[in-house]
Design a protein around this nucleic acid. Sequence first.
DNA 1: AATGAATGAGGCTTCATTCAT
DNA 2: GATGAATGAAGCCTCATTCAT
Lengths: 198, 198, 198, 198
Amino acid sequence: MTPLPHNRDEAPSPQKHDAILGAALELFVERGFHGTAVPAVAERAGVGAGTIYRYFENKEALVNALYQKWKTALASRVLEGFPVDVAPREQFQTIWRRMSDFVLEHPRAFAFLELHHHASYLDAASHAIENNVVEFATEFVRRAQAAKALKAVSPAVLMAVVNGAFIGIVRGSWEGRLELSRENLAAAEQCCWDAIRY
Amino acid sequence: MTPLPHNRDEAPSPQKHDAILGAALELFVERGFHGTAVPAVAERAGVGAGTIYRYFENKEALVNALYQKWKTALASRVLEGFPVDVAPREQFQTIWRRMSDFVLEHPRAFAFLELHHHASYLDAASHAIENNVVEFATEFVRRAQAAKALKAVSPAVLMAVVNGAFIGIVRGSWEGRLELSRENLAAAEQCCWDAIRY
Amino acid sequence: MTPLPHNRDEAPSPQKHDAILGAALELFVERGFHGTAVPAVAERAGVGAGTIYRYFENKEALVNALYQKWKTALASRVLEGFPVDVAPREQFQTIWRRMSDFVLEHPRAFAFLELHHHASYLDAASHAIENNVVEFATEFVRRAQAAKALKAVSPAVLMAVVNGAFIGIVRGSWEGRLELSRENLAAAEQCCWDAIRY
Amino acid sequence: MTPLPHNRDEAPSPQKHDAILGAALELFVERGFHGTAVPAVAERAGVGAGTIYRYFENKEALVNALYQKWKTALASRVLEGFPVDVAPREQFQTIWRRMSDFVLEHPRAFAFLELHHHASYLDAASHAIENNVVEFATEFVRRAQAAKALKAVSPAVLMAVVNGAFIGIVRGSWEGRLELSRENLAAAEQCCWDAIRY
DNA sequence: AATGAATGAGGCTTCATTCAT
DNA sequence: GATGAATGAAGCCTCATTCAT
C-alpha cells in the first residue's frame, strides 16, 4: 500500500553502497589496503565515516566485498556463455579478449585484483571465487591438452604463464612502460597462444 | 658498494643490520609494508625498537634499502658475465635459469620484489635499479629482433609477457597451485621462448 | 576574528576547544612547552588524546593558538579605547593599570606569555601580534618624548625597562618573594614612571 | 712520588667537564632544558654520550650544575669586594655595572639564568644561591632606605623592578629590539636609579 | 538511517640512560 | 676512564571504530 516499503531491518541505499566500494577501489589501488584510512574512503565516497559501518562490518569486510564484487564480475565476463563447441584456439582467444575488455573497461578494478598481494586479509569466500575461476581454466586446459592443442605440461604451469603474462602487460601499463592498447593486447595474445600450444 | 659504515656516523654491527633486513623481508612479504609495524620488525630481528633507527632513518628508508639490496642482487645475478657471443635462444635460457636460481635460493626476496605493489613508497634510487634492468632487457630484445630471432613486437610487450609469466609461476607456487621445481621452471621457460620467438 | 569553526572541516564543540586551551595553559606554565606531554594536556582537559588533534593540527599549533589567544587578549585589554587626549602620565598609568588588571584576572596566562622563552616554536602569526604591541608602545613613547614628558632615551630601552620591571613584579610573585597586590603594583607603577619621566 | 696522582675515585678531566657545561649552556639557551637531548649535548661537547654520565648523575643534575656554576659566577662578580663605605647611588651603580660586565662577557650564561623558567627542575642547592643573592640585595635596599636614599617601598618590589628592568634590557637585545651596548645599559641604569631613589 | 565528533589503542620515532668494549 | 651502540619507555600522532544526535 505504501509507495515504497521500508527495507526489512537494514535499509541500505545502493548508491551509497556503490559509492563506498568505488572510493575504496580508488584508494586501495593507490595506497593498498593497510595504507588506506577508512575515513579517507568515507570522504572520497561523500558519506560520513560511520556510514561505512552500516554497509560493511569492518575494514576487512569492505575489502573482501570489493574483492568479491570485482572478481565475480571478471569471472562472469569470462565464463558467461563461454563457447563450448569451438576450437581451443578460438576459445583461448575468447578468454583473452574478454579479459582485455574487462581490463580496458575497469582498469582500476583489475589493478586492485591482480596487482596487489591480498594474502593477509582475504577470507574464505574470496578465495572460493578465485578457486572457481581456476577450476574452470584447468578444465579448459585439460580438454585442450586431450585434443593435442596444448603442450603436455602441468595445467597449473600453463595457466600461471598465461595469467602471469596478462597481468604483466597490465603491470607494464601501470608502470608507464607500455600502452594498454588493443594492438598490444592482441600481440600479447598471439605470444601467449604460442607459449602454450602443442 | 663499500662494505663500510651504513648511515649516521660510526659503523654499527653488520649482523644487526642484516638481521633487521632479514626480519623486514619476512614481514613485508607476509603482511606488506603498511601492514607491518616497525616494532614487529625489531622483535623478529631480536633487537630493540629504537635500534632500527640507528641503521635506517625511518621505515621508508628501510623498505627502500631492502628493495635495493635484493633488486641489485637479482640484477647482478642475471647480468654478471652475461654471454654476449651466443645465440639469443641460449641467452634467453641463461636469463631464465639465472632468475630461477635466484628464486629457488631466495624465494622470499623474489616475492617481496615482485609480488607486492611498491608504488607508494619507493624512492628514486630504487626506481633507478629497476630501470637499469629494464634497459638491459630492452637491449637484449632489440638485438635478438634484429637477428630475426624474436617476434617483431614492441620490446616492452615481449618483456612484459616473459617477466609476467615468470612472476606468474612464482605467484602460483606461493598460492599453492604449483610446485616451484626445476622441472616446472624449465617447462615454463620453453613456453616463454615459444611465446616470443620469431 | 570570527567565532566560527576552528580547523579541519566542521565546527566542533567550543567547550572542548577551550578546555584544551585551559589545560594546556596550566601545564605549559608549570612545565613548559617541551616538558608537557600532549596526552597530559588531554587528560587534564578531560578529553581523549586523539581529540586534541581535531582542534589543533599538532602540538606546535596548539601552543601558538594559546599564545595568540592570550597575547591578543592582553593587547586588546591595553589598547581598546586607549585615551588619546590625556597627559602622558595618565596614559602611562592607564597602560600599567590595564596590565595589572589583566595579570590579576589571568595570572597564569600572563605567566605563560612572559615568564617563558618561546623563541624555538612561535610562528609568524604569533610574532606579528607581539610586534603590533611593540609598535603601539613605541608610538606612545615617541609622542611623550616629543612632549618632553619622557627621557630622551631610545624608546626600545624605555620600553624594555618598564615592561621588564612589570614582568619582574609578576616573576617575584610566582617565586613567592612578594605579593601581587594592587598596592605593590601601584608602587611599582610610580617607580616605573619615575624611571622614564623627563 | 708519581708525577700526577690518579684521582681518588673519579678522575674527571676538567676540560671535558667544562666542555659539557659549555655545550649544555649553548643548547639550553637555544631550545630550553626539555627541548635539548643529552646526546646532542655530548656531540656539541665532543664527547661520548655515556661520558656525560661520568660527570653528572643525570640530565637534571647537569642543568643544576650549570645553573649553580653561572649563578655563583654572577653573584661573585657582584658581591666580591662590594664597596661598603660609599653612597647608595654609587653602590647601585657598581651593582649595575658589574651585572653589565657579566652580561657582556657571558651573554649566553645570563640568558640561560634569567630568560628561562627553571621552576620545574631546579633543586634546593640552586635555589639556595638565588636566595643568597636576594638576601644581599635586600640588605642593600634596607640600608639605603634607612639612609633615605631609596623609596620607602617593600624591598622586594624595588628589587623586582630593577632586576626585571635589567633582564628586560637583555631580553630586548635577544629579541633584536635593541643593542646591548654600554650606552644603552648606562641609560637604563639611570632610569632604574630614578625608579627607586627617594 | 546517517552522521561525524570522539576515542584510545597502536603506530612511528626520539631520547635518557646503561653497559660491553 | 671513555665510548657509543643499544635499549625500551615514552612522546607525538593516526585511524578503526563507536555512539550520541
